[in-house]
Write a protein that binds this DNA or RNA. Structure first.
Lengths: 210, 210, 210, 210
DNA sequence: GATGAATGAGTATTCATTCAT
DNA sequence: TATGAATGAATACTCATTCAT
């Protein structure tokens, strides 16, 4: 391992350290209320150091999304690759994968929508933006392919698979957001998992060719 | 009409004037970037005046949500009251109503989630918070009753109607948010309506007793 | 006096109040070391208020220059208008005027050069920049006309009057800067006035047709 | 050559390397906007290394002045030593020398005035400050001696030679600064050389005993 | 000597909110 | 009621300088 490589690795470790701290702080306070100093303190670093690794607050925030997307993509692709699963079983596996993604970082969906203001996007480096867009595109493509497969095998109804992937993702994120917000406002208990299960069940039922 | 009442009416008119201006400004800039001065200018009032009608920025923002919830409730209740509709037809009417709500104020859903940070909630008056919670509860109750009706009549499967209402709402808001964000990031065209239609179609299919 | 006018006057008074404070602070600390908070304190205002009257630090600084240019222009024009003075006498009056300008604000010359970085100019409003440029141009035009007059009357040698005006101004500002800096570095006494007198005497001598 | 001496020489080379880089960066960005990292990069060194050779940013900046003063002194002394030149010819040679100095480093004059804030001076080492003061004094002394010579020989009028040297220097630096700033603001062409020539011509004329 | 990662003090600017008129 | 000038706390970001390696 060359010196170059060791440095790169060290740098990556630091980035992760900051990202972990940022995740905690953003989760608790939200993007606007969280200050760079909060994050620096959480990471036991100085504010200036944050800027050695992330161009600005927006970019640090977006990096959280990138991280979760990477995990999402891996999980989703894994489902897609299980050759001996029937389309319906794949759909169920997909639902499980989504839930794992949620547990990996409950903020994922919230992140991904707060991100989408054109004002925020302006402050991201092209590079990071491209990575996010690309990964998001690839993950959806995999989901789409699962639907395509099911349609081809005559198990699913012949909807446009692109649209199906969008709806699947929307249903997932919609339920996450809604249950999340109910929890906060009503101090309800956490009903995410069972609600999500029923949601996917109905979705599957509606999709299946009877 | 007493003087008291006239004053009250006048006051209400002003509040609406401010809300309309706020809606425009928040839509364009988002909660954080919009300033109270922007809104005051849009309303052709002075910043100070805004505070005669709304306790603070958060409360003004939340009032937008209240307004849309009021509209949502009216529309939804109207659907529920159409006695001679079959459950399935009611569900379709409900979907149409939701779309009208979206068109009445496309920000609704976005609003309703941005609202839910506990940090923000702290700044709302108990009164306003209660109104929002109550109205939201009532609207969902009506939706729930539609599902109950369908289940009782043996048209829908016997899921928990409370959960069904949540899922219905989640599906709607999930698709709205997702299509919205796709439009911003990818500068895609607006596919909301058709996507929403398919989503509800699948949902109906999955719900229906075959 | 209308209410509009009174407000305008009040606003102008405030601007002057700030400018006076800024002059003191900039004089003592220089542009970079002076902070907006220093100036606010000196003006017994809050930092925010400064920004109600000046777009930014650079613009506040440039306003100092504008103020002195206004005074310079008035003095110089007054000299030019004294019809019964001979060109040589006018030149002497001009020298006196310049000295008054210096006493009105010793920072003038220093200001006027620190101003000229293209970086700084970028932050000025077009309006202010135009005013400064215009006033500076007009003042030099008046000086030029004095030389033209002398040349026409055969009193001065036939140099290009534009160049003469530039040299006259350069000589003045050069001496001011140099004596100023000697005072600071060597803690010399103030020899500005006598040095300036000799400088102009030599300049006049060299210009005069013998 | 001892090891000690070799090291000293090596050290001097490094200092020059840094000064050359600093000159480039300061010229382009000015003192405030130029960062130590900019300079380090330009010198192909690390920021830390700069501090092995210069106490701080101010001292590095002041070293530029020292360097130009050294050149100025050499040139000026050379003129003074040309025994067979008449005082007037010497004055012309002096003017040429000044122009060479300007071309050696156009920033010289600007440098030398920006330097003079007592705030800046505080950060210089006594040693460097002494060197600058001494060299500046010596250069002016040489200039003064040229005037003394001319006065004694009855060619120049009997002004105080100390003052004459100051005025000569002021005229030079005044014209440089003024033409420089005209160039930046008005994007005028470069009229320095011809303006300077006329300025010195007039100065000479005014000084000469007729 | 040389490095360059880390520091953390320093500051221009914004903007929700207040209050004298 | 309405105003809008004034406030001043809050914060992202910079950069001269240090110091462990």
């Amino acid at each position: 391992m060359g010196i170059q490589e060791r440095k790169e690795r060290e740098r990556e470790r630091r980035k992760q350290q900051i990202i972990v701290a940022a995740k905690r702080v953003f989760s608790e306070k939200g993007f606007t209320k969280a200050t760079m100093e909060d994050i620096a303190k959480e990471a036991e670093l100085s504010p200036g150091t944050l800027y050695l690794y992330f161009k600005n607050k927006e970019e640090l925030y977006a990096s959280l999304t990138l991280r979760i997307l990477q995990y999402l993509y891996i999980r989703v692709e894994h489902v897609s690759n299980e050759k001996d699963l029937e389309p319906e079983q794949k759909l169920n596996s997909l639902a499980d994968a989504m839930f794992d993604v949620y547990e990996f970082d409950p903020l994922i969906v919230i992140n991904m929508f707060q991100l989408q203001s054109s004002e925020t996007l302006k402050h991201l480096s092209d590079e990071l933006l491209a990575e996010i867009t690309e990964l998001s595109r690839k993950a959806l493509a995999v989901i789409r392919s699962i639907f395509e497969d099911g349609i081809q095998k005559g198990v699913f109804q012949a909807y446009n698979p692109v649209v199906l992937a969008d709806i699947f993702w929307s249903l997932f994120s919609g339920v996450v957001l809604w249950e999340e917000s109910k929890r906060i406002v009503n101090k309800d208990k956490d009903f995410l998992k069972p609600t999500l299960e029923i949601a996917f069940e109905i979705f599957n039922g509606g999709l299946r060719k009877s």
